[in-house]
């Protein structure tokens, strides 16, 4: 295109009718909120093809499966308890559910956390974010909040199923709700804390790889190692009389989260079980503290990573 120059001594910029944005500008918090909503949709695969929804929904389903089965058979279970064929102890409770089914929740994080942060690095999207109203820390917090919310939702699915199941087992529904409510309530803060803890770990570790598959391998290695190594050292130390070895058990994220759930509900810690249980020498407070410290540390790592990342 060639435009004939109007009288211009040294140089000129012509207004050829550019479209100016005249609307309202929302600013930083709106940008953070948008990124948060987009992230949460991404974790669940909304607005994406069915294949993107498969992993989060199937894994949440598997995680909630025991509770859903208990819900489906609640009338039969209540009868067999009444007739003494089963004892109330066989039924999953709010505070020990996570310990039993956490494997699928870990898989949920392995599959979905890299989804949130790796591709932004791989396809060099970050500079586009950082040149907008959004800061680096804003990005990190929006992603963390999105994953935490999604994981919290997943964690609450079996809790709600258990709640409904417990109510259905009782003849008087209204009274049952009143009785059950105080027992169910602690599962909300416990799930929130667990979700934040798992999400901060998963996101911080994932942010170190632009490739989703490598991030997933890293997460698997971390969660499995933390499940095995402290336990091995603790068992060895028990024979050797190392009284410090029990504190290592707080390093296992899933173990610490289930102990924290016990702390919220006031239930006793499970000190025996399939994997030898948690050491009896530590109180539930220690695990809650460990979970909080882990959240702080991994969030700091995440922020540090995004501060240093070349955009």
């Amino acid at each position: 295109m060639s435009a004939t120059a109007r009288t211009a001594p040294a140089g000129n910029i012509y207004d050829l009718g550019y479209r100016h944005y005249e609307g309202k500008r929302h600013g930083r918090w709106y940008a953070v909120w948008s990124l948060y909503v987009e992230g949460m949709r991404g974790v669940w695969g909304f607005g994406r093809p069915m294949t993107a929804k498969a992993a989060p929904f199937i894994l949440t389903g598997l995680y909630a499966l025991p509770a859903l089965i208990q819900l489906a058979f609640s009338s039969i279970i209540s009868q067999s308890i009444a007739t003494g064929e089963a004892s109330a102890r066989d039924i999953a409770t709010y505070s020990d559910y996570f310990a039993a089914a956490s494997f699928f929740m870990v898989l949920f994080l392995v599959a979905q956390a890299p989804e949130l942060v790796c591709r932004d690095q791989r396809y060099h999207v970050l500079p586009l974010y950082f040149t907008r109203a959004l800061g680096r820390a804003d990005y990190a917090f929006a992603r963390l909040a999105a994953l935490t919310t999604a994981v919290f939702m997943a964690l609450m699915v079996p809790m709600i199923a258990l709640f409904i199941g417990d109510i259905l087992m009782k003849p008087d529904t209204l009274k049952a709700i009143g009785d059950e409510w105080p027992r169910a309530l602690p599962s909300i803060p416990a799930s929130a804390l667990g979700a934040l803890s798992l999400s901060s770990i998963a996101l911080a570790l994932s942010s170190f790889s632009p490739r989703r598959a490598y991030a997933a391998v890293g997460l698997v290695a971390y969660f499995l190692l933390m499940g095995i190594v402290p336990d091995v050292i603790f068992q060895v130390g028990r024979h050797a009389g190392w009284d410090w070895a029990d504190k290592l058990m707080t390093l296992n994220p899933t173990g610490a989260i289930s102990a924290a759930a016990d702390w919220f509900s006031g239930a006793p810690l499970v000190t025996t079980g399939r994997d030898g249980g948690l050491p009896a020498t530590l109180g539930a407070d220690a695990y809650v503290l460990a979970v909080v410290v882990s959240i702080v540390v991994f969030t700091a790592v995440l922020l540090f990573r995004y501060r240093r990342m070349p955009a």
Partner: peptide, 22 residues
């Protein structure tokens, strides 16, 4: 360091659980 001289314990707890499985 713990003077834990248990072949089976180390084989199952470490060599199998960590080395082979992970």
């Amino acid at each position: 360091a713990a003077n834990d001289a248990d072949v089976a314990g180390f084989a199952t707890g470490v060599l199998d659980a960590v080395a082979v499985t992970l």
